[in-house]
Write a protein that binds this DNA or RNA. Structure first.
Lengths: 250, 250
DNA sequence: CCCAATTTGTTCGTATGTATA
DNA sequence: TTATACATACGAACAAATTGG
């Protein structure tokens, strides 16, 4: 087994560094679920043997995956596959906080759930064909008991076979945790576009707000490992008491 | 000189890795202007000798500064201090683009300029005392000839001595380039909070828009090396045809 | 056009320190 | 205490890109 891997790697067309190949091999294992969320991956010493390279080369591959928040290193313990727990959601994916800086985990309530077909916009965002089957549901998010955000979420049915309203309602943790644990889809990155817009009647009604209130409209696409779109989400946020918080980088 | 540096580093209270100390030493040189924007820093071989450590240790320090977009490596040429040119602005600091994804550099026109004193909000954001002297000016930004954004910019006068309206108007490049070249202040990071709001009368008038239009309001603080706030900026963006574009990370 | 010098990029190997179980 | 795993640091060799002669 070890020899095979080494050959496969050194047989690469070259020009591509070994550590990049190893990074790809690791991503493949993550994608296939060979390395499951929350579990420790083999130690650097094991990987060094398995891939037949120096330990520094292994570390360089792991470095990149750690920088992408895909793996998590812990000195003395091991290197782990990142999971979608509440902390990670709050830190990396939920960008709304009170204007005084207070940040907390939102309470989520599902409004409705339906099977539908992708319109042009959804198809483009999810990189699927127009008319392909999708699941669509809406969530109301609250902070400190106050409803302030409506999420309309669209998933390609092909990626989420047999996902039912019941399973969504009864999920014990975050949505992304469900995607990860039940369907092997780990969200590792999002792209989003924000704009200001007057609250659509539907949205205002769902949140119990006056129609015509200015709201933040967010279009977000969530991707898993190989830039595969997993979810498209349109959010409307009441920003009268809360902000969307961002920074530089990329 | 070399010996002194080595002593200084090894005399550190320990617990702090050498490469972290070297990173700090490099940041100090950048802060003091010993390494000027756009210029090459000494080669890794030189730094290795100067600091009296292994080349790998130098590389690890540089790695971090490269990841922070403070230094830029170029194989065969050297390692350079990042400058605020238009490309960097567009890529790292200007987040507005057309809703169809088209991205370009904005045209800037200064509306007014005044000396004032920091109110409570400005003081908090800029970490200065309330009532301290500040410079305040407003810019209208246009894309493809259409005015779509009003920036109100506040600078602590202490950091920008003798900055005049004339120099601002006659700057050849970006604002951050001016901060960097004329005042030795390199913006390396920003924090921002976004919300939706109805266009204030003043803003609508300056941009030639109808009052009461929903606009994106952005509060941004720009920092230089040691988390020192350099600029506070409140922007109002007409997002009827454009979006604010963001991503994950941090 | 090629050669030589310089500089960063990759890879190897080893030793030791520190945190965890 | 011991074993394991990641973190730091050292040193060396060669590859790849750039520059200037």
């Amino acid at each position: 087994m070890a020899a095979r891997l080494v050959e496969a790697l050194s047989a690469a067309p070259s020009g591509v560094p070994i550590y990049k190949e190893i990074r790809r091999a690791m991503l493949a294992r993550l994608e296939q679920g060979a390395w499951a969320p929350g579990m420790a991956i083999p130690s650097e010493a094991k990987l060094k043997q398995e891939f037949g390279v120096a330990i520094g080369t292994i570390r360089k591959a792991v470095d990149e995956l750690v920088a992408e928040n895909i793996l998590i290193r812990q000195q003395g313990r091991g290197t782990f596959v990142a999971t979608h727990n509440r902390d990670r959601l709050l830190f990396h994916f939920f960008h709304i906080e009170r204007q005084d800086g207070h940040k907390e985990y939102p309470e989520v309530r599902m409004l409705d759930f339906e099977r539908a077909r992708a319109d042009e916009r959804c198809a483009a965002k999810l990189k699927i064909r127009e008319g392909e089957r999708v699941l669509r549901f809406r969530n109301v998010l609250s902070l400190e008991g106050v409803q302030l955000m409506l999420d309309e979420i669209v998933l390609p049915e092909r990626l989420f076979p047999k996902l039912t309203e019941k399973r969504l309602r009864e999920r014990p943790s975050t949505l992304y945790n469900l995607y990860q644990d039940e369907f092997g889809l780990s969200v590792v990155r999002t792209e989003q576009r924000l704009r200001a817009a007057l609250a659509p009647r539907e949205v205002a009604r769902a949140l119990g707000l006056a129609a015509g209130l200015p709201m933040m409209e967010i279009h977000r696409v969530a991707f898993t490992y190989n830039d595969l779109p997993v979810e498209f989400r349109v959010s409307h946020v009441d920003t009268s008491k809360h902000d969307y918080v961002g920074g530089t980088r990329r």
